[in-house]
């Protein structure tokens, strides 16, 4: 298996989490808009599968995406829950649950990066 650069993987995940956060923000802001269908970003596993070849390369270029969604697909979710008569499918509780997940993952992500950065610096100091 190709060695994976931890910092690049963490950077990609934090981008994904940020895009998910903005999708959640859009859903919550539009919770009362008629006809608005809740949206979510594609799962991170799919992103990894797609990028399996390029992630292990040391190219920083593909991380510098200017577009807000950074190349992740943000699509309308299939509605498993209730659809209001107005056509709105946003369930506030689910959105807040997702936001909690994003927060936990993000905290773990930054903690890991901080720790490995510190280890790297300590190891490299002569």
């Amino acid at each position: 298996m190709e060695p994976v650069n931890l910092f690049e993987l963490a950077a990609r995940q934090s981008q994904w989490l940020s895009v998910r956060q903005s999708a959640i923000a859009g859903n919550i802001a539009n919770a009362n808009t008629p006809g608005y269908v809740a949206r979510d970003v594609e799962p991170f596993e799919k992103v990894l599968d797609r990028a399996a070849v390029s992630l292990s390369a040391t190219q920083a270029g593909h991380l510098g995406d200017a577009a807000t969604n950074a190349g992740f697909a943000v699509k309308q979710e299939e509605t498993t829950g209730s659809i209001l008569p107005s056509g709105n499918t946003v369930v506030l509780e689910n959105e807040l649950l997702k936001a909690g997940e994003v927060r936990r993952s993000f905290e773990l992500n930054t903690a890991i990066v901080k720790a490995f950065h510190a280890m790297m610096m300590a190891a490299v100091k002569s």
Binding site: E2, P3, N5, L6, F7, E8, S56, A57, T58, M120, A123, V124
Partner: peptide, 12 residues
């Protein structure tokens, strides 16, 4: 650890 970003004396 090899992914220091700066010191890649061998292609990854």
């Amino acid at each position: 650890i090899g992914g220091l970003g700066a010191v890649h004396l061998k292609p990854s």
